[in-house]
Amino acid sequence: MDIQKINWKVFLEDPAPADPDIFFRVFNTWIPDSPEIFVDVADYRHVHDGPLTALIGHHTDYWLDETDGRRGLLYNRRTRTEGSNKSKLTKSLRDILSACRRLEADPAFGGKLRFSGKELLFLINDRAIAPNTPETYRAVKPDLEEILARAAGGAESALEHLADDRRRFSVKIKFERPQNLGEMISRLGG
């Protein structure tokens, strides 16, 4: 299958410093002069179990997301991407990890923001091309495993298909040993 609409989520070591207000301010600074096309920042602090602060892009969104009660950075690809599945997975994973690093380094968080290298969430945000079925999982798994192994420098990761048929196709990934985000980025060619 041709993988599109890739979503990744990287969780936080500690949700406390990930204040939506600070994200709102920081995301706003990402818009001017960005090579990516960003449109606006939306504030959803008043709702639960979804985005808290969303940087909306033309191709890609970045959200401070709290779906299922777990805070993290979500990468949401909106437009079509060309290339092989492997290249799309590599690039998108590298992009979200780089965004995490950029946020960690932003002085607005006072050095307290830390993303976790223990786990990831992978989603395909399209119920037409990727119904949440075992077939989709079978089709995606080999490429996904290969890219994750490359990112983790050969370290094992455990994949779990979250097979709730009302939810989008999602895979929970747990690394055997915690990964350093910077190292993962360089292994992915960043």
């Binding site: 119904p131 079925t133 077939e135 089709a139």
Partner: peptide, 21 residues
């Protein structure tokens, strides 16, 4: 709903929905 491999291969999401619905 089970969707066959064939149904989802190579089509755009719009084509898939159009056929599926």
């Amino acid at each position: 709903m089970t969707i066959s491999e064939k149904e989802t291969s190579g089509d755009t999401p719009a084509e898939i929905w159009k056929r599926r619905l």
